[in-house]
Each structure stands twice: as C-alpha cells, then as structure tokens.
C-alpha cells in the first residue's frame, strides 16, 4: 500500500478549477517529481497533501490517515508530513537553532537538550552546523532554504514535500540545495516536486510521473 495515496481528487478556487481528477500513489522511500507548466497546480497538489488547502472531491490518504476528513487531526498529520516552501518561510525572529527546535519542543514535547541535539544533526546533514546561532537574515538564500529543509527534517516526517525549493534562488545557489535533496533521497525520504526538469535527471533517482491531467 502507498504511503501517500491520492484518489481522483478535484480542487478549485471558487469557480476556477485547479486540479481535476488527479490520482497518484507514492510508496515509502520513493521519490516522485511532479512536473508541469507554471500555474498547472503543482504547488496546490502538495498543499492539499498536508491539508493546507481543502479539496472538493476525491480522497488523499497519508500513511492510512484520510487528510480530507473533518475528524482527522491535521496537527497530527502535519507532524508526519514535512513541507519546504519556495520562499523558505523561516521564522525571522528566531535563530536557526530556535527555528529548528521550536516544533520538536512544543509539538513533540522533546526536551530542549534533545531538540538541540537533533538540530545539530539535521544541520550537519545540510552542511550548516556552524550557523546554529545565526539568524535567518544573516544567511544567503541557499543557506536559508537548507535551514528550512533541516527544520522539516527535525520533525522526522514520513513524507517530505518540496515545493519548487530552488526557484527563488540564484542559479549559483541552487546547487547546494540540490545536493542536500540528493542526500535526503539517498536516506530514504520520499520527495516532492520541482519545476526544473533538469533536477531529477541530474540527481534524484526519480520516478517521474507527468501528471498530465493536473491542468484542468
């Protein structure tokens, strides 16, 4: 059974249809890149998977939990589904360490010491150990995005969603982020999507599925 199972979902903003009858299954450890023209609904698809956007029809199941069920505790679900945004969305008032440890501490109730240990480990994985006490504004775009990835990893999610994580970066900075993604795929974390078709070919052992019907 798929870890993420999307069955014939439809989504529209008001009268504007965005997703129409989309189905997709992602197994544990699998990396899937969703490709499509800009505005075709790739980001929306990802945002539906962690419940940031409601859907109008179909079902999404993550690890056996129905996302679009009013009875589902979205907070529980989101602890298992990490998402990294195009615009990083780090918390500007918190240091790198606090950005990473906040959710493990207040959501997962980890002790500050344990959370800090995890922060060190995930920062090491994205190669930014020395930035533990820096603030987001002191980092380059590529570094901020790597911290955002580390922040998601610290929750030990079962699924990671990457929403065009390099598109807001200068070309010379995308390389460092892609390297982190490659390493992530190698450690068995399922991936998300990227609009640049070079990326999967370059690095990820991707099973690319063109969702042809994404665009309504």
């Amino acid at each position: 059974m798929s870890l993420v199972d999307i069955q014939a979902i439809s989504k529209s903003y008001g009268s504007l249809p965005v997703l129409k009858d989309v189905s997709l299954g992602v197994a544990k450890g699998e990396v899937v890149a969703v490709i499509g023209r800009s505005g075709s609904g790739k980001s929306t698809l990802l945002r539906c998977i962690n419940g940031l956007e409601p859907i109008q029809a179909g079902t999404i199941t993550v690890d056996g939990v129905r996302v679009n069920d009013p009875k589902t505790d979205l907070r529980k679900l989101r602890q298992e589904v990490g998402i990294v945004f195009q615009s990083f969305n780090l918390f500007p008032h918190l240091s790198v360490c606090e950005n990473i440890t906040l959710a493990p501490r207040v959501v997962r109730k980890q002790s500050p010491d344990a959370a800090r240990e995890v922060a060190r480990e995930v920062l090491h994985r994205v190669g930014l150990e020395e930035k533990l006490d820096a603030y987001p504004s002191q980092l380059s775009g590529g570094q901020q995005q790597r911290v955002a990835i580390a922040r998601s990893l610290a929750m030990r999610p079962k699924v990671m969603l990457f929403d065009e994580v390099t598109s807001a970066l200068d070309p010379e900075l995308t390389g460092e982020v892609l390297k982190v993604l490659e390493a992530g795929a190698g450690s068995g974390r399922p991936g998300g999507h990227d609009h640049d078709p070079r990326h999967p070919r370059d690095g990820l052992r991707a099973s690319v599925r063109l969702a042809r019907r994404l665009h309504a």
Partner: peptide, 25 residues
C-alpha cells in the same frame, strides 16, 4: 500568511502559532 502556514505545517496548533510565531513578530 506564509508564516502561519509554515508553523501549521510543523504541526503547531492555532494557539501555538499565535504564541510562538505571530504575536512575537
């Protein structure tokens, strides 16, 4: 709004989002 979404995506409740992310800023 993206700050709310980033916090919600980490599994924080509405009150946690307010307390740790939105109000301090």
């Amino acid at each position: 709004r993206t700050q709310w979404e980033a916090a919600a995506s980490l599994g924080m409740s509405m009150s946690q989002q307010l307390r740790y992310i939105i109000i301090p800023q």
